[in-house]
Design a protein around this nucleic acid. Sequence first.
DNA 1: CTGAAAGCGCTTACAG
DNA 2: CTGAAAGCGCTTACAG
Lengths: 335, 335
Amino acid sequence: MKRVSLKDIATTVGVSTALVSYVMNGQEKEKRVGAEVVERIKKTAKELNYKPNQIARSLRKGSTKTIGLIVADISNPFFANLARVIEDEASKFGYTVIFGSSDEGVKKSSILIETLIDRQVDGFIIIPAENTEEQIKMLYENKIPLILVDRFFPNIETNYVVLDNFEASFDAVNQLIVKGHTNIGMIAYPSTLIHMQERIRGYEEAMKISNLSENIRIAQVRYGSVQDDVDKFLHQFLNGRKKVDALFLATNAITIATLYGLIKFNVKVPDDLALIGFDGNEAFDFFYSPLSFVEQPINEMGQEAVRLLIDQINGSTKISHVKMRHDLIIRNSCD
Amino acid sequence: MKRVSLKDIATTVGVSTALVSYVMNGQEKEKRVGAEVVERIKKTAKELNYKPNQIARSLRKGSTKTIGLIVADISNPFFANLARVIEDEASKFGYTVIFGSSDEGVKKSSILIETLIDRQVDGFIIIPAENTEEQIKMLYENKIPLILVDRFFPNIETNYVVLDNFEASFDAVNQLIVKGHTNIGMIAYPSTLIHMQERIRGYEEAMKISNLSENIRIAQVRYGSVQDDVDKFLHQFLNGRKKVDALFLATNAITIATLYGLIKFNVKVPDDLALIGFDGNEAFDFFYSPLSFVEQPINEMGQEAVRLLIDQINGSTKISHVKMRHDLIIRNSCD
DNA sequence: CTGAAAGCGCTTACAG
DNA sequence: CTGAAAGCGCTTACAG
């Protein structure tokens, strides 16, 4: 495609590129360009099918109108939904989204951040992986607009938008207690990330407050082998000396793996085992005992993240720490 | 962040930017740069934490190493999975992905294409929406590297990677026939797009070949109101004069909506109604009668799309029309 | 009201 | 072996 440049229009009309630039950017009023010239420029631009080259403009203006989004895995429904919300909200402000999946890995996260910096994104929305505190600190210290979502690092003063995970977990576990369960286990990741720590803390606190501290049992499954580990722990939970009668599941992926495991082992929910999961998922609706779960306000989180980021890009230095409230969707599985 | 430029390094070392550029691009051999100079440049670049500005480089080279991906909806699992595969494959070749969701709309598709052209993507991977033939033709005529996935326009000579939808549908419906079903209905979109036409044709052909032409019944649900329309048609299918005993469902979203509808209406699968759906989905596994479905080779499709696109970007003018084969995952729901 | 010119940060043909 | 210089396509302060 032979690209049409400002200069082509300028030559055709017989004016300078400056005038064309003014007109194309709607500054004909401020710059008081002659009405007749404006007309001819617009007409020619249309005839020649002129498209401004954003790359050139970006180089000149030092801004790309691009947001870098780093999630754990774009194919995970939670992140795919979040990405969709971010895409829509960003486009309202004229921003485009470049994305990448870190797979919760330090190395991949680092490469992605480098790549996106090279591409001069105006700011980042990041779901930070474990042990990436240094990377985030680097962005923060270089004053690159940044907003963390889902998790954050307490030692870095970045903006973030997260769920109040402690509250959510506490509420979910308490719901199981209210329903009469006492031997409540939890399946989580052994992650040092705050969202996981808070979910675990919420579970522990709910147990303690109901004098069930002795029954606290937390299984930790590795990110790379969720299904195998879940299966193993389910076996222990269900056949060990001290059996559990309910489980609180810390993430969407863990919940799905648990459902697969329970079907395999032919465990009856909620009679043999009551369940509360995390994050919505169509699959939860079709489990024979529709699953109760903690629902995050994905739309609000995504929108707020974009807005806060754009505020920063526009120069705001206000630090916002947003904690959002969950909803508890109660159905048959936790009876 | 005070960005470090080539010139900063050049000044510090006391050489021209040309030399620095050669060294940073690993051309010190070809350009026969003095070994000692190479050393000093590399050292300084590291000390100053130099990061090349890809925007400047893109402007100069006329290539951005960026792929524009347009899907119907990134939050739909089929497209989210595809996006993930494309991301991974693209990054192997040093490409970054910018994405957008068309919502199957002409206007949104057009805006996305414009935006991505403005951003000078090197090429497009597009799941084309209905009635966007003109947009695709425009890209094609302007020789912008392009590859269509999932669907294509028979009248435009673009590269594409799709499923052999006719084969897949034929096979799925035939499976229902083999299992003894005769009154087999289909729920589809009233789309003129080739993938939907082919799925419908496969259904019709399978019915015809088994002398079941008279039983052909196709319900067409609108993209914007899938659940309502599915519910309505299910009611007709199950309570009309001529009842169906099996359904073939043309897409992932239609399949999910059908499962919700059947649960609502308390229909027993497969006894009252046998089912075969389209595209995998975790939810299918948890339906009380695990769903049989047509599985697309998403990994292969995404990888092939990226490779063919990069070939084009690198100058290949070969036209590739790739049709891939499905797998039929047979489980309880179609008995 | 309009134009000449500098400059964003690179790459690269050219000259020596 | 190395440097001066042009140019990618814009924007914008400046001058008139």
